[in-house]
């Protein structure tokens, strides 16, 4: 018997769109291909070499021999398959496209807002563009990466996305923050 499954975003109907864009903006990505890659024993260097960001996908440090790979080019269905082919026996790949939610926080106060819940030094010298880390934000664990001087990507498990957005709104209470789905 065939079933029709419908993909529903974890935050659909949960964030009231604020039409007016404010100084700081939290953008929720609707579709992003995400995969988790874990290098085989002793094969971290080989896997890392294959995962060098190439415009097609971007690998973010998650732990030793472990990366979160995101792609704007690939569809969720094809990213994991593509990575499996490229990595061969060097690593294990698990599709996470529907398991995680990607948020982009940008604006002049982005680092200050995050500092209200994340106990990691986010000064540009200590946490430069391109640096990624798994961090604790209040009580939620997430992957944080600095994508620009004033912008960060947050990748969180799907079922925690609502709580994280609520937390971020509280963290940004003394700053101007708008929240909406990304238009792309």
């Amino acid at each position: 018997m065939a079933y029709d499954y419908q993909a529903v975003h974890a935050l659909d109907g949960m964030i009231g769109a604020i039409a007016e864009r404010r100084a700081n903006h939290l953008s929720v990505h609707r579709t992003m291909a995400i995969a988790m890659v874990l290098a085989g024993p002793g094969q971290t260097a080989e896997a890392a070499g294959i995962l060098v960001s190439n415009g097609e996908f971007e690998a973010r440090f998650s732990g030793p021999g472990e990366w979160l790979v995101l792609s704007q080019v690939h569809a969720p269905e094809t990213l994991a398959a593509e990575l499996s082919v490229r990595l061969g026996g060097f690593a294990f790949v698990v599709d996470q496209s529907h398991g995680r939610v990607v948020l982009t926080l940008s604006g002049p106060d982005a680092a200050r807002i995050l500092a209200n819940g994340i106990a990691v030094d986010l000064h540009a010298d200590a946490f430069p563009v391109g640096r990624a880390a798994n961090v604790l934000c209040n009580h939620l664990s997430l992957n944080l990466v600095r994508t620009g001087d004033q912008s960060f990507d947050l990748v969180v498990m799907r079922s925690f996305a609502g709580a994280l957005v609520d937390d971020l709104k509280v963290m940004a209470r003394s700053h101007d923050l708008s929240v909406d789905f990304a238009t792309r």
Binding site: S62, G63, P64, E66, N134, V135, L136, S141
Partner: peptide, 10 residues
């Protein structure tokens, strides 16, 4: 033994 549960999980 400490586990970095919210970080690298090692």
């Amino acid at each position: 033994h400490w586990q970095h549960v919210a970080g690298c999980r090692r």
